[in-house]
Write a protein that binds this DNA or RNA. Structure first.
Lengths: 203, 203
DNA sequence: GGCTTTTAATAATGGTCGTTATGAAAATAT
DNA sequence: ATATTTTCATAACGACCATTATTAAAAGCC
């Protein structure tokens, strides 16, 4: 019983996500959110709770809709392909939309106000979880003989993520896709290759 | 004639810089600034102008006091040493102070509110200027035969800066100095070396 | 010591922040 | 058709934002 919701919940969440993406958590106001969503404040509160809860919902959607390339990458057969797919995916995501360049998560990790500290902490942990997955994937690659025994999975994962984060910053600073592709290329030049693999043969 | 200033201008600027470093431009309030500087609001206004002008002064000091490693690096004899010094300097700066990790500039580049857009734009340009200097240094290295003719100075500079920016993000996320050293090491593994140089002999 | 000039601290400005009462409109249930 | 329930928009809430009058204190000049 009762009245029905008049707005499309998914459309609103997408609009909210875009605003957070563009302006960051602490840079986004309810004025921005209502303008983008075409829905008044109380509707946002009844739909999501407060600003922090809304951001977390937006973050979930960000993972589902835009960070798919991460599990995709992890499922590839070799560590080298994992790394390539991660870099390519990051470039694509960071430069695809002219209105909101860069990465929603990285932007939030660098937030500074006291109010946004809980959100920042959450993002720090989420980022660490992603890196952990990559590291574990590279450890598996060592077990499978796909990375050399001498390779350090933790350092490779940290390095790869550093390049991805750096590209997010550069994308926000206006870098072109082509420039970022040059960055990714250089990053992969020293990728370790185990003896006896196809990759080692062609080098 | 008239009363003398009672506070030490340099000490206040240092305190202001630390707050901006910790909380970013848009995350810092005058309450934070007065608490850290031990000086009331009007004194800050008479000394610096408004918040934006104060941030720019803090940025100048940041360059003088903490970004010295950049011109230092550029003055080194080989491109390889330039890159090493840049990475080492970034690691040091980003992890030295537990209360304000990361990089003041990178934090500002990712600011999102409408108010901070002028500051963000300024930082984007300052960042680009730094990268330009590195690129030109690498072009000189090609002329001097220190980098191979096939090397792309722009891609190398962009790559190096990407790693530095990524390390700033990771430092803000709590990474240890040792982890970042692993990142830098991996970044340098594929550094191009011209034939006939000492570096090429030892490899 | 009086007069002027500069700095200092208190406190108020208008504006915007995130959040929430309040009451009208719409839809189901009886 | 009436009562009940839920959503909607208007408008208000206190808190904090950057900025600035206002007034008291301190230091140089005569």
């Amino acid at each position: 019983m009762g009245r029905h919701r008049e707005f499309d919940m998914e459309k609103v969440l997408d609009a909210v996500l875009c605003v957070f993406w563009q302006k960051g958590y602490e840079g986004t106001s309810y004025a921005d959110l209502t303008a983008a969503a075409g829905v008044e404040r109380p509707a946002l509160y009844s739909a999501f709770g407060n600003k922090e809860a809304m951001f977390r919902k937006a973050l979930d959607r960000y993972h589902e809709k835009y960070l798919r390339y991460l599990p995709e990458a992890l499922a590839l057969p070799t560590a080298r392909e994992v790394a390539e797919h991660l870099l390519r995916g990051a470039i694509d995501l960071n430069t695809r939309y002219p209105t909101h360049r860069g990465c929603l998560m990285i932007q939030g990790v660098l937030a500074g106000s006291d109010d946004s500290e809980p959100v920042r902490q959450f993002l720090v942990e989420a980022r660490a979880a992603g890196e952990r997955e990559v590291r574990q994937r590279f450890e598996r690659a060592k077990d499978e003989g796909d990375l050399p025994e001498t390779a350090r999975a933790d350092a490779l994962a940290a390095f790869l993520m550093a390049v991805m984060h750096g590209m997010a910053v550069q994308a926000k600073a206006g870098f072109s896709r082509e420039t970022l592709e040059g960055v990714a290329e250089q990053a992969l030049l020293a990728w370790p290759v185990a003896k006896g693999t196809k990759a080692a043969m062609t080098s």
